[in-house]
Structures are given as structure tokens and as C-alpha cells.
Amino acid sequence: MSASTQHLSRAGVSIWLDDLSRSRIESGELGALIESHDVVGVTTNPTIFAGAIAGGAGYAERIAACATRGLGVSDTIVELTTADVADACDVFAEVYADTGGRDGRVSIEVEPGLARDTAGTVAQARELWAKVDRPNAMIKIPATVEGLEAITETIAAGISVNVTLIFSLERYRQVINAYLTGLERARAAGVDVAGIHSVASFFVSRVDSEIDGRLNAIGTDEALALKGQSGVANARLAYEVFEQSFATERARLLLDLGANPQRPLWASTGVKDPALPDTLYVAELVAPGAVNTMPEATLRAFADHGEVRGDTVTSEYLESNQLLNAIAAQGIDYVEVTEKLELEGLQKFDASWDELYGTVERELRKAG
């Protein structure tokens, strides 16, 4: 057992692994991480599944069975990914029960091509939820403008949602509003709101990468002194939004009726700049109730040498605001940056989906 991950969990942060594959499940490695690294959940996305299935381990027989059934590529992808998520949900069933549904969660994302399609997103969210058929699943929906209403409708149907690809504070406020609206509709329809859970995935390292590139281009000492700080500052201010939003009368009414707060989740926590500490986006984002979803390299780095200094978020709001104001004073437009990152995020998921589609198409052809 890692002392560092134990301390992180005791500080109120839920550790989720940002990775899943058939080999992780069947080897027992996923289950072992619960004991050795305090992992209490898993997130997935098209990039993760593209890598796992392209690697091939554990998928050949399942693809052959899909070929025998005459399934097309898209249906085969659904079969493979939902099977992995369902089996991972079973691995985390005890964690789910022990935490009252707060953790033990495994996320699966709607197809990236639906990011601008509200009705299509809702339809596939329902399909994936029914296909996985586990109460501890979460359906990932991108926080595009079109995704906001899809989030509301999916929550209203009693389906737990992981909202992904959030970069800006304003979009995060809209996501929380979409969640609360969904809870209100669920309650009006007689759905038990206590059974609905949600997290809001706020991306961290990509903000640093984009803003630091612009600070490098400016090149002054004043600009360069601001590098490596914007991602953490932005996330800390997101936590302030979380605190404020769930302290409102509207939210308190729902919470008093048994609803759950939508927890902030730190995503994109792998450090991309080798000049920065490899545990930066874990150690500097410790706050009660937060989730940190880590790629394996980040998880193992923190388990090895990560330090927990208590809450590193809630006392830093003023400094975080000052930091973002200083970056704005350099001529860097926050709105333009976050809109660019959302678009790039969608493009990366589209590219990964194309890779996944091509891999499965080739394997089906071989199996047929």
C-alpha cells in the first residue's frame, strides 16, 4: 500500500485511474490497484479504447464472436467497450457499495461524432447505460453547448453522468446548471434523485500547455515568470465555483431531498512539460470531495514520491485570480484559449475514434 495515495484519499480526494483494457481486468491488475494504490474508480475515452484494442490483448476472441454474429464495426465497438466497462464495474462493485455510490465508478463516453448532436447524445447515453447495465457506470458527455441539454435530459432520466472536456469557468457554471436542472426534472418525474451521481471533468494540463506556449512567444521575463501555473489556478477557481454553486438555495433544496453534489474531477493530470514536477496536478489540487483521474504514469509517480500538504485549493482563490489576471495583462485571451482547447479536444477524440474504427474494421475482416 502506498502511503502517499493513502494520505491523498484521507485528505478527501478520490483516486480514479484514467485507463482501462481487457488485459488490466483479466490479469487482476485493476483489482490490485484498489488495494495497492487506493484506486476507487476508472475513466475511459476513445483514445484509451483505441490504444487498448489496437494492442489486441484479450480482444481477438470477442471480435471473432462479433464477426460470427454479423455485427458491423460500430456495433462491435459498442460490444467491446461496454463489456470492458461492465466487467470493470464488477471489479469496483464493493467500492461502490462501501461508498454509497460516491465512488466505484467506471465511465464510458458517447461517440465523439455526437458532440454537437443533442438528441443523438441522449439516445446513445441511454443505449450505453442499458448495455453496460451496472448501477456504478457513468456516461461521459462532452460539455459542448449542444451537450448541455443532453446532460440535463440524461440526468433527468436517472442516468449518472461524467461531464467531460470542461476548460472554462463559465462553461463549468453552465454544466452545474444543466445538472441541477436535470435533477429538478428527475424529481418532478418521480425519479429517485439520491441514485443519480455526476462528476464534472475539468481539464488541467492542456491549459498550461496552451498558455505556456503563448507566454514563451511573448518571451519577456514577466511573461515567462507566469509559466506552469495557469492550469492549477484555473482548476482552483473551478473548485470555488463548485463551492459557491452547491451552497445556493436552489442546490440546497435538492441536496436536502437526497440529491448528490456534482463533484469536480481533475482530468488531464499527466504533466506534459518535463520542467514541471510530475505530481504537480495532484499535489496542488487537493480538496475535499474532489476526484483526480490519473494516467498510470502519474498514479505511480505520486504513489512513489507524492506529498500531501493538506488542502491546497481553498486558501488559494485570491492568488489564482491574480495569476489569471496577470496572464490576461500579457494579452492572452482566456475565452479564446478555452474555446480553442475544447475544439482541439473534440478533434483528438475524433481522430482516436477513427483509429479505433479502423482497427476494429481490420480485425473483423480478418475474423470473417
Rank of each mutant, 00 (worst) to 15 (best):
G101Q: 12
E170Y: 04
G147I: 15
V204A: 06
E111D: 12
K227P: 03
L215C: 08
E153P: 01
L128P: 04
V163P: 04
S198T: 04
F203K: 04
G147C: 09
Y172R: 11
D117G: 04
A200E: 03
S201A: 14
G219F: 09
F202N: 05
L169Q: 14
G219R: 04
W129P: 00
R187I: 02
G219M: 06
V132I: 12
L169F: 07
A125Q: 11
V193T: 05
E109T: 06
A137N: 05
R134G: 06
D133M: 02
S168W: 11
L226A: 01
V207R: 04
G231P: 01
G190Y: 03
V204P: 02
P142W: 02
Y179N: 01
T144H: 05
A156K: 08
A143D: 10
E127F: 09
V163E: 13
V161N: 12
T152P: 03
E153M: 03
R171K: 14
G219S: 11
G101R: 15
L148G: 05
L165Q: 11
G182D: 02
S198W: 12
G113T: 04
A143E: 11
I218T: 11
M138T: 01
R126F: 08
R214G: 07
V175Q: 02
K227L: 09
G147T: 14
P142A: 15
H197N: 02
G213E: 02
N136I: 02
G213P: 02
R126D: 10
D103I: 06
G101E: 13
D208V: 08
I176V: 13
I155T: 06
F202Q: 07
A115N: 11
A125N: 09
G190R: 04
I155K: 08
E111G: 09
E149H: 05
E146I: 08
G120M: 13
E153D: 09
N216P: 00
A156H: 11
G101S: 07
L183N: 01
T118L: 08
G190H: 03
S198A: 13
A233D: 07
V232Y: 14
V175A: 14
I218L: 11
A217V: 06
A233G: 07
Q229C: 02
G231D: 05
S205V: 00
I159N: 10
L183Y: 03
E222I: 01
R214F: 10
I196H: 10
D133K: 01
R134V: 06
V110F: 15
W129S: 08
A186N: 02
G120D: 14
A200D: 00
E210W: 10
S168G: 08
G195Y: 10
M138S: 03
G228T: 06
L226D: 01
R105N: 02
N177L: 04
E170D: 15
E153C: 03
A137P: 01
V163H: 12
G147W: 09
G120R: 05
S201E: 07
E222V: 07
A188M: 01
R206V: 00
S230L: 08
V145K: 10
V163Q: 10
G219D: 13
R214H: 10
I141Y: 07
T121Y: 13
E170T: 14
L169Y: 04
V122D: 13
G195K: 07
V132T: 12
M138E: 12
F203P: 00
A225Q: 05
I108E: 13
G219K: 06
I196W: 14
T220C: 01
V110T: 14
A217M: 06
E153Q: 11
